[in-house]
Structure formats: C-alpha cells, structure tokens
Design a protein around this nucleic acid. Structure first.
Length: 475
RNA sequence: GGCGCCAUCGUCUAAGGGUUAGGACGGAGCCCUCUCAAGGCUCUAAUAGGGGUUCGAAUCCCCUUGGCGCUACCA
C-alpha cells in the first residue's frame, strides 16, 4: 500500500518550496494509486499560528491539490510519548539531566564535535529513574550506537546510496524537558503509525534521515523509502526566505498576480524535475502520467527573480501558454473574479462572454490583464491611450469612422464579414487605404492601438456599443 | 571545525563513455501581417579548475575551488 505525506509545520504562510514538495508527493501518489496524507507537524506550540494553517489550506485549495487523509500532530501526543517510552524501555534512549543551554556553550567548534553530554549516557538506570521520579527535568536522548563501527545506510530514490557512520551522529533529542516530542521523534512515530511507505521531502532532511532510520529501527517499524528533493533557492544562492526575499516565496503572490493554478503547478514541477523529452507545457494528467523519481535532479534550482520583478519570466511564459490553450470554460471563473474585482460585470450571454475571452486571451499573460487591458471589452468606462489617439488624428479618420457608423447602422447582419465588406467599400468610395479605417476602428472601439483583428472587435464589442463608440470619435 | 550533498548557456534543463553539447525562458533579428500578440525561422550563451583512467570524458575516479544542508530541548 503506497502512502505518502506532506507534513508542513504551520509557522508561516505556504512557501512555494513547500507547495512543490506537496506536488511531488501528490504526483507520486496519483501516479501510483497511493494515498496522499496532509499532516500538520505542529509540535512547536510557540511558533504555530492559525493564520499559517489557513494559509496552507488556502494555497493548496487554490492550486487545486487534494489529499485523502488529514492529521494534526498535536492530536497525537500520546502516541509520541508512548514511542519515547518504548525507546527508553528498550535501553535505546536515556535521560539527560543537563540543564538547558548549558551544554550548547561547551560545544567546541574547532575540536571534537559534540556527541553527548558527559556522564548522562552512562548513568545507571536506578539513578536516572530516581531523579526523574523526583521531578528533575530531563531531555530524552537517543543512544546512538558507539564503538561498534556501525554505519547507517539507505538508498535514496533521488540521491542514491547514502551512508553515515554512527560515530558521526550525535545523541539527538527525542523529548524536550517540557515533555514535548522533538520533530525527529514525532515525525517518525507518526510516519510509522500512519504506515507511510515513501517519505518525499526537501534535501535539507537528507542527513536527518540517518537519525530517522535509527528511530524507525528502535520502534521496530518498517523503514520507509526515501526520496529527497533538491531545494528551491534564490538567485543569490541563498535559501528562499520571506525576510530576505519578500513575496516571491509565498504562493499567494502568484495567485494575486493572476496566475492560473495549474500553470503555477506546472512551473513548480519544472523546478528540479524534468520529463526528459523537452516538454514544458503539460496538463495535470500528462504530468501525473509521466512523473517518476528518475526525472528529479540533484542540484538546487534557482527561482529566477529580481528586486524589480518578483516573478520568474518562465512562470509568466508558461502562464500565457496555458491561458491561451486551456478550454475557455476552464479560465472563465478566474476571469470573472478578476472582472468583478475591477468593478465590472461579465456579459450575461455566456457564449458571447466565452467568445470575447477567447479572442483576447492570446495576447494576455495573466488573468489580471483581463481587468486592465481587457476593460474596453467589458465596460464603457475606459480611457483612450495616446497611441490610439494618434490613429484617430490621421487626417479624415474621425469623419470616416462616423461615416462607417452610419453604414453599419444599416447593416442587418453585423458579422465580421459584413463589417469588413462595409469598411472596405467605404474606403474604396472615399479613395483611402483600408488601414486608416481598420486602425481607426481599433482605436475607437477599444481606445487601444494594439489588439485583435479589427473585424473581430466589432462582434466582440457588440453592435450598439461599437456604433456608439464610432460616433463618439466625431464629437 | 566535523559530517553529508551538489556543480552543463544569465535561469530551468537534455545528453550518463563517441552529438556541430539539444530544448525552453530571457535578449537580438527576420518572416507573416490592418496594429499588437501568437506562430515560423535565425542569432546570442554552458560542461568550475587541475590531475588521472581510456583509442576517446560533460559523462568514470581523485584533488582543489565554490555553493548548499545538518551539526538545537526549530522543523
């Protein structure tokens, strides 16, 4: 039974690196018919916030990512304590009564690395039990095998064979002196209890894995398969952090910038993973069908942004590609949201609405463009841009456009073909180039010098509005 | 400091002993064209350095350098 989990600690908004970790877990589960578990690793009570939990749900929901089971570590503290007690009972852990903070100062940074606090590991069971019973605070540590020449090994699905000598692993903590489990213990106890088969997480946990294997073994649990993911880093090579890099690290930034959820998922997938066949734009199903650990590479990926532009240009390009190729119906809800936010109402006629969106989307890169550049298509409240004004200032243009309005009022069809016929006939009659009327039409109808084919514009804007806007340039 | 991981165009990446080192984004240009996009074509730009192994190395090995991670009673 394939079971994977995404286990964020709710100490901040949903980070794009976390979102990517979720996606890779999710892809692996969906690809192989497994179960996707969302588990909030909230054992660090002081740093957890409800806002962070909300942000995780909001981000995941926006991206259209789903999970099959949900847990909170804080609901499972008994399980963690039982696991700790079992390890202590087996003699694989011991109490360390060294007062907090004291040992850290003694840690040499140039000499021998710290492995354990002196005298604690060797303490007799009797003394340990007695002091604990007397209420003396202690941290429970793992008794890492010493003097046996033992090496912990595992095969990572991405990084290959890994090995680390136990002599290089310190006696890490399992339980804090306040009785709360550490990340290592809680995570492993839960992974064992939830029968997680594959742990897919950031490469920053690669060296923690040796400790985790020791815990799984001490618990008598099966050791899961591991797949570590390269990290997402900033152009300066540093880990992405809100303090240092600002909004680029937050999933909401991309939502607010008008990204299509799937295009952002697609972009994230391409950071550290490749289908190896030069494909870039893919549907969700295509990615699920082709996803495998073999396509994940081992070096960290840079999210390409600058101080002036927080968005990776490739993400923008990918968004524009999806924006123009998805079924129109799929992007309509997003467009509607943007229009309403900009104080506009989408056309009541659904088919006409879809046709307009379809006409203009090829030249837009984000949903936000519908609310700005798309204004003339949905509202009468728009400005004439300077470049468009120039088209209207061409000698005779205004008068010709008014003339065209008069002709179109008599056109019973008002189709692209009939409008073109009227326009060209008028141009011929007056002995002017059709371009004057074509460019003038675009300027009059949309207030823009650039945009779709002028003839398409007429049907997109609609008969009444188009004629009114043509007449308006004559005033 | 110790331990571990990583290293191909500016960025994302392909090639895993034999290729003119491929694709994409970005940038530049051309074509198309009623404008702008889109699309098509062209150009720009990379195997960190040094040693091996081999007929042949981006690819395998070693060293150096650089980056990153862990080294907490954070996760």
């Amino acid at each position: 039974m394939l079971r994977v989990r995404f286990a964020p600690s709710p100490t901040g908004y949903l980070h794009i690196g976390s979102a990517r970790t979720f996606i890779f877990n999710w892809l692996y589960a969906r690809r192989n018919g497994g179960t996707m578990i969302l588990r909030l690793d909230d054992t660090d009570v002081e740093r957890n916030t409800q806002a962070s939990i909300d942000s995780i749900f909001d981000g995941l929901n926006w991206l259209g990512l789903s999970w099959d089971e949900y847990y909170r570590q804080s609901d499972r503290l008994d399980l963690h304590r039982q696991a700790a007690e079992a390890i202590l009972a087996k003699g694989l852990g011991y109490r360390d009564f060294t007062p907090a903070g004291e040992a850290a100062e003694e840690k040499p940074h140039d000499g021998e690395p710290w492995r354990a606090n002196p005298g604690q590991r060797e303490m007799s069971k009797e003394e340990s039990d007695r002091r604990a019973a007397a209420g003396e605070p202690f941290v429970l540590r793992f008794r890492v095998p010493r003097g046996e020449g033992r090496t912990v090994v595992f095969k990572d699905a991405v990084y290959g064979d890994q090995a680390k000598a136990c002599e290089d692993i310190e006696d890490f903590a399992l339980l804090r002196s306040n009785g709360m489990p550490t990340y290592h213990l809680a995570s492993c106890a839960d992974d064992a209890d939830l029968r997680i088969s594959h742990i897919i997480r950031g490469q920053d946990h690669l060296t923690n894995t040796f400790k985790h294997i020791l815990i799984f073994e001490a618990l008598g649990a099966a050791v899961p398969q591991f797949a570590h993911l390269p990290l997402l880093i900033a152009p300066d090579g540093a880990k992405l952090s809100k303090r240092k890099h600002g909004p680029v690290v937050s999933v909401t930034t991309y939502r607010d910038a008008g990204f299509l959820p799937h295009s952002y998922v697609n972009f994230l997938c391409l950071l550290g993973w490749s289908p190896k066949d030069n494909r870039e734009q893919m549907t969700r199903q295509e990615i699920i069908d082709i996803f495998s650990f073999e396509g994940i590479n081992r070096s960290n990926a840079v999210v390409n942004f600058t101080d002036t532009d927080p968005i990776d240009p490739k993400a923008l390009w990918l968004n524009s590609q999806h924006l123009r190729s998805l079924p129109v119906a799929d992007i309509l809800p997003g467009v509607t949201a943007v229009l309403e936010a900009a104080g506009m109402t989408p056309p009541a006629d659904e088919a006409h609405y879809a046709a307009v969106v379809d006409l203009i989307r090829a030249r837009y890169t984000t949903l936000l463009d519908f609310g700005s550049k798309g204004r003339p298509y949905f509202s009468d409240d728009f400005v004439i841009e300077p470049a468009a004004l120039e088209k209207l200032e061409v000698p005779g243009a205004r008068e010709l456009l008014v003339g065209l309005a008069a002709r179109l009022e008599l056109d019973p069809e008002f189709t692209e073909a009939s409008v073109e016929k009227n326009l060209r006939e008028l141009a011929t009659e007056r002995g002017v180039k059709a371009g004057v009327l074509i460019n003038g039409s675009r300027a009059a109808l949309t207030g823009q010098a650039v945009g779709p084919s002028a003839f398409h514009l007429y049907t997109a804007v609609g008969r009444d509005r188009a004629i009114a806007r043509l007449k308006a340039v004559g005033q």
